[in-house]
Computed example of a mutant assay.
Amino acid sequence: MKSILVTGGAGFIGYFTVKRLIQEGYHVVCIDNVNDYYDVNLKFYRLKELGFQKDDVEVWGNKTQSVLHSNLFFYRMNLEDRNALPLLFEEYQFDGVINLAAQAGVRYSLENPMAYVDSNLVGFVNLLECCRYNKVKHLVYASSSSVYGENPKVPFGEEDRVDYPVSLYAATKKANELMAHTYSHLYQLPTSGLRFFTVYGPYGRPDMAPILFASAITEGRAIKVFNNGEMSRDFTYIDDIVNGILITLLNAPKEDFEHPYYQLFNIGNGSPVSLMEFIETLETELGQVAEKNMMPMQPGDVPRTWADTSNLNKLGYKSTTSIKEGVASFVNWFKSY
């Protein structure tokens, strides 16, 4: 594979994925609509680090070449655009597609459900159609650990039933898996879904716990600790996630699989950490103790996540970054941002 499309290229995971693909010598086109779900300045900051100037990437549909990498291009575009996206596929004839574009956030899905319908459902079908008609060799797409809902069995395994999501966001991700399976079955389109488990690191989303907590601690504000702190997460450092994405990209599902041309993987740390331990590690690295405001569980949230990554491990994946190492790296970036 030489030519790769990365959707959501201005996002957290997208930014690091694009960087790694460029380092590996791929020709990369990334798209993003740069919406205002969170501070767009962080998205433009990531794009600037990739060699794109704000004045160029603000323009919808504008083809922009990175000033740092001759093999990297950016378009501001909606995934659900039924005119622009097919034209992009026709122009570049991508070998592989990594779909990281989505309306994110469990709690925000309670406030603005139609944003999830447009991007996560309509946009994903539009992408599948483009992959189908342009004979893409492999589509790797982001699913989520949220599909497991309140599954009592731990660790979570890909074979577990995930029929009872507790948020619209989770429901759209499960729908993505079902739609991908349909296209793999009908059109022999190789698809691989990755169920991400609590990704964190430098340049991360400001609506996620690390930045919310770090900002509050350094500004002397109390942090909100949901479910009275009785939560645990399979915190996974961004570098480990990107390694897993590339490993998956290079291992497309085959015709002789149990589900031909279709596969699903958990991608996580495989060793959950309590929320209170994560906060304590963050306090240590920041050199400040947080005031804590204990609160009940929020609608759509779950008390714990825990990934069984044994299937992806068979392809060579391994999470190697400890919480202490990962939080230290995040804090170093946070202090300079």
Rank of each mutant, 00 (worst) to 15 (best):
Q103K: 15
R107N: 12
M114R: 13
Q93F: 03
K135Y: 09
C131E: 03
C131M: 05
G123E: 11
R132N: 05
N126Q: 13
E129L: 11
S119F: 00
V106K: 12
V125D: 10
G123K: 00
E90K: 15
L127P: 07
K153W: 07
E150D: 14
N126M: 05
F94D: 07
F89S: 07
K137L: 15
P152I: 04
S109T: 07
S144K: 10
P113K: 13
Y108T: 10
Y141M: 04
Y116C: 04
V106R: 12
S143K: 09
V97T: 04
G123A: 06
C131K: 03
C131A: 06
C130S: 14
L128Y: 06
K135A: 12
E111F: 08
F94N: 08
R132G: 03
E90A: 14
E90W: 02
G96H: 13
N99I: 01
Q93D: 06
F156G: 06
Y92S: 02
D95L: 01
P152D: 08
H138L: 03
V122W: 10
V154Y: 10
S143V: 04
Y108Q: 12
I98W: 08
L100N: 05
S145Q: 15
V154T: 10
L139V: 05
A142L: 04
A104V: 15
I98V: 15
V122H: 12
D118Q: 14
S146D: 11
Y133K: 12
Y148S: 05
G149C: 06
E129C: 05
A104F: 08
S145Y: 10
N151I: 05
P152R: 00
V154R: 10
S145C: 14
A102N: 03
H138T: 02
G157Q: 15
N112V: 11
L100I: 03
A104R: 13
L100W: 01
L110Y: 12
Q93V: 00
L139A: 06
F124N: 07
S144L: 05
A115P: 00
G105H: 02
Y133C: 09
I98M: 11
E111H: 09
Y148H: 09
D95I: 01
N126V: 08
V97Y: 02
Q103V: 03
G105L: 04
V117D: 04
C130D: 11
R132Y: 01
D118I: 04
V106T: 14
A102E: 15
N134D: 04
G149W: 06
C131W: 04
A104Q: 13
M114F: 13
C130A: 14
M114E: 12
H138W: 01
L139T: 03
N134A: 01
V117F: 13
L128N: 06
H138A: 05
V117R: 09
D118M: 13
V97F: 02
P113S: 11
Y116R: 02
K137W: 00
K137R: 15
V117K: 10
D95G: 02
V154C: 07
N126G: 08
G123M: 04
N112W: 03
D118S: 12
V122Q: 09
V125A: 06
K153R: 14
P113D: 06
N99F: 02
